[in-house]
């Protein structure tokens, strides 16, 4: 197997999870709690797009865009309904609330759409071969979409008034309010951004594999690991974290540790020493813990005090 292929596989994985993780980290930056219901927005978005794409026969891109907007609005609605009442509460209280919300949303999806495996009306993709790498058109689309969204996020954060206001609110909400920034409006924007990014990520996962009501929940732990790895609150960190996770999972399982330990046969003869595949999930956690020992606030996290 070619090394390029492994990098591409890692890139696909990173694109999907990166979108989710950026959304999570952006909301964390303002709301200061790890939202366990975040991944459910991905699931809801993917299923809304499914309904429009398959049931109503809309174009998948259009369906996706509408779904993303709807999920963004839904998240604001949820904020008005639930989280607005908990503004001053401890982050643990918020986490547990989002936990309950996540259970309700996940099973809501299940109640509405059922548990059957679903897929978008894009047919089975046939891969094309580029520089010895096999990749399907949809996967190229996934990588491009996520790169474009990341650029857009970057522009919003750095070049717009909204971005500036967000940074101010994140650093010191009271001061921001005093400077005339309408912090509640910022919070709404942040919910919208975070949830629609999650929905986009969910649709990407749906395009790449298939849809089930647990598609969000099943990526929750890697998404959290990515945001922590990169540094909570930092979208660029999330991008880096996603890449690291994708690469370690793919390269970690592929690398023959025996060859590395013996410097490719220089000392002794030891081959076929691989990390057991059962530990795939653990690889990302161990990387995460190692990184945190080195930098307690993640790779690009904000320094404390």
């Amino acid at each position: 197997m070619l090394f390029q292929q492994i990098v591409i596989n890692a890139l696909i994985r990173a694109s999907e999870l990166g979108l989710l993780a950026i959304g999570l980290t952006v909301t964390y930056d303002i709301l200061k709690f790890a939202n366990f219901a975040h991944v459910e927005f991905a699931c809801i978005g993917a299923f809304l797009a499914y309904t429009m794409n398959v049931t109503l026969g809309m174009n998948i891109i259009l369906a996706g865009l509408v779904a993303i907007l709807v999920v963004g609005v839904l998240s604001i609605f949820i904020d008005r309904l639930v989280f607005i009442r908990l503004r001053g509460a401890s982050s643990i209280a918020l986490m547990v609330t989002s936990l309950g919300l996540g259970i309700a949303l996940r099973n809501g999806v299940r109640a509405i759409w059922g548990a059957r495996i679903k897929g978008y009306a894009i047919g089975l993709q046939n891969p094309v071969e580029l520089i010895g790498v096999r990749i399907t058109p949809v996967q190229i689309f996934i990588i491009l979409t996520s790169v474009i969204s990341m650029v857009i996020i970057h522009l919003i954060l750095k070049r717009t008034k909204l971005g500036k206001a967000m940074r101010a609110t994140s650093a010191n909400p009271a001061l921001a309010q005093a400077c005339g920034i309408h912090t509640e409006r910022i919070v709404r924007w942040v919910w919208f951004m975070g949830a629609s990014l999650a929905a986009l990520g969910g649709i990407m996962i749906g395009l790449d594999t298939h849809l089930t009501p647990r598609m969000g929940f099943s990526v929750m732990i890697p998404v959290f690991a990515i945001s922590i790895l990169g540094g909570l609150g930092n979208p660029y960190g999330a991008m880096v974290g996603a890449l690291i996770l994708g690469l370690t999972e793919n390269i970690g399982l592929y690398t023959d540790l025996g060859k590395i330990l013996t410097l490719n046969g220089l000392i002794g003869n030891l081959t076929g020493l691989y990390i057991p595949t059962g530990y795939k999930l653990a690889i990302s956690f161990i990387i995460m813990i190692v990184v945190l020992l080195w930098r307690p606030s993640g790779i690009m996290g904000k320094r404390e005090r």
Partner: peptide, 28 residues
Amino acid sequence: IPTRRLKADYWAITTLGAGEIVRLFFLN
């Protein structure tokens, strides 16, 4: 011991990870 200096949210996810590693250990 190694994680005692982490901030609350980092600590939360790190322990979540540790829990999964323990489960994977007994599974594998």
